[in-house]
């Protein structure tokens, strides 16, 4: 079997290494062996693209509105009202949570704006700014955990089911933020990676907005 015959037969075999004739050619041909190895790497990486992206939280709001219009949602979802302002906590949360989300988004903008990052690197200020960015990120992470707990507390007072849903959503979006930040750090010149970070922070901010929209009387 020569290379042309091997490559012609290749599409038929999910695992060419298991076919005796193909296996014999693979052992003797480094080019075809490299080809199979590369294709295996692509196939191995492909499943990582499944379920890898979080949709914009607005999609659910639009879908929910469409379901209500069509009469498919017959019972209104339990309203997640902010608890009455006993001991002054409710009113504080009603403004503090959106503000916290906005702060998180702003931190995302400050830390990961690519042009800023590149400009600072080019002026030799990296050594000063990177630890500062790390401190900002760590502070943002700690603040984020507290904000999430506050939000879940408010949501949970009205509906344990929705609390679990929001907890899962926050977990997803925080994981998305971490992934995006890791990718951005690994590829500081990659604009798409930087956009992913911004997108991740925006999604977190939208989650907060959705929770607060539901909570308003």
């Amino acid at each position: 079997m020569n290379c042309a015959e091997f490559q012609k037969a290749l599409p038929e075999f999910a695992e060419p290494q298991r076919d005796t004739a193909l296996q014999a050619h693979l052992r003797s041909c480094s080019d075809c062996s490299l080809l199979v190895s590369d294709l295996d790497s692509i196939v191995a990486a492909a499943p990582s693209l499944a379920a890898s992206e979080d949709p914009n939280p607005q999609i659910w709001l639009q879908l929910e509105a469409a379901l209500k219009n069509e009469g498919l949602i017959r019972q209104p979802a339990a309203p997640l009202l902010v608890p009455p302002p006993q001991e002054g906590r409710g009113w504080r949360l009603s403004w503090a949570l959106p503000v916290a989300a906005a702060v998180a988004l702003t931190i995302g903008l400050l830390v990961y704006r690519p042009s800023t990052h590149q400009n600072l690197q080019s002026t030799g200020k990296t050594a000063v700014t990177e630890p500062a960015a790390a401190v900002q990120t760590a502070a943002a992470t700690n603040a984020g955990i507290n904000e999430d707990q506050d939000l879940l507390e408010v949501v949970g007072t009205q509906s344990p089911t929705m609390r679990a849903e929001y907890a899962a959503n926050l977990k997803d979006v925080n994981a998305y933020i971490r992934d995006a930040e890791d990718a951005a750090k690994a590829n500081p010149d990659d604009e798409q990676a930087q956009e992913s970070v911004m997108n991740a922070y925006e999604q977190r901010s939208m989650l907060y907005e959705m929770a607060m929209d539901r909570s308003l009387p």
Binding site: E64, L67, L72, I73, R74, Q75, A77, T161, M162, E165
Partner: peptide, 9 residues
């Protein structure tokens, strides 16, 4: 049964 929370879940 048309439960909105269930759709969201």
């Amino acid at each position: 049964q048309g439960d909105g929370e269930a759709f969201e879940v």
